[in-house]
Structure formats: C-alpha cells, structure tokens
Amino acid sequence: MSTIIAYFKGIGQGLNTLWTGMKVTGYYFFHARKEIITMQYPDNRDTLKIPERFRGRVVMLHDQNNEHACNGCTMCEMACPNGSIKIITDKILNPETGKAVRIIDKHIYHFSMCTLCNLCVQACPSNALAMDNSYENSVYDRSELTFVLNQPGSKIRDNVKD
C-alpha cells in the first residue's frame, strides 16, 4: 500500500516541479513586452550603439590636412604577433638640413591575419594607429582584406619626433 502511495506521490511531486518551471516560462509569455532584449539586427543599424573601445580593425589616423603621425619606426610591425603588418619605408632628402629622412611609403595591413589584439596600437610611440568601430567586415575575396593604411598623397605631420 505504502509503495502505491509513494508512487502517486512521486508523480504528484514530479508534476509540481514541471509546473514550477512552466510558471517561469508562462510569466515571460504573458509579459513578453516587459523586457525585450532581442535586437532586430540588420534593421537597427542606425540605432546600434557600438562602444568607442570596440576593436573593429586597425586604421591610421589622418587629420584634415591629410597628414598622419607615422614615421615608419616599425614598432607595430615588431609588436604584431601574426605578422599582419608590413611597413615599406622610403628615404627622402630634407632640403633644409640636407639629411636623409625616413618616411613611410606603404603601411600594409593584412586584416585576414589580424587577431585584433591591440598590441600594435599600444606599441606605437606617436599614436598614429587606432582601432575603429567598424563591423560587417566580410568580403568575397581574401585580397580585399589587405589594406594600405596611409591614405594616398598623405604625408607625415611636422611635429612628429623621429
């Protein structure tokens, strides 16, 4: 007799535990509008807030005169763990002093190899590099992921130390 009672008691307790869980789901079913956390992602691009520290990809900062702060010291190239940065430098003759000055020809950045670790930005002594907040970086061909960071026609700012 006691086993039969225990059997039905077990069924009752089991149903009770199921009901406890169903109460939680039931609450959210009837209070669905109370806290909506789902984002309608592609439609909410305009209102999407990306934190300013979000690491999208590496960019070189240019001012309004199309001038950057990179003097080609290759600190970022050495700091990069994956070899995704390659700097091609050039030398020009400073007309005032008559000395050869190192400038960058191309600051090549392979986004396909980059792990966005931020070490290059930290290594840069003249704060020429930064991480932008871009997302949706997928492309159809791998070659499109190689960027030249210095803009065409840009030159180094005057007050940057060598």
Binding site: Q13, L15, T17, T20, G21, T25
Partner: peptide
C-alpha cells in the same frame, strides 16, 4: 533563482 526553478528541480532533469 529562475535557473533553479527552470532546471534544478525539474523532475526530468533530476
């Protein structure tokens, strides 16, 4: 506590 209600006590889960 919702975690407990949903899963911890659930008869099927236990």
């Amino acid at each position: 506590p919702e975690y407990d209600e949903l899963l911890s006590g659930n008869i099927i889960f236990t």
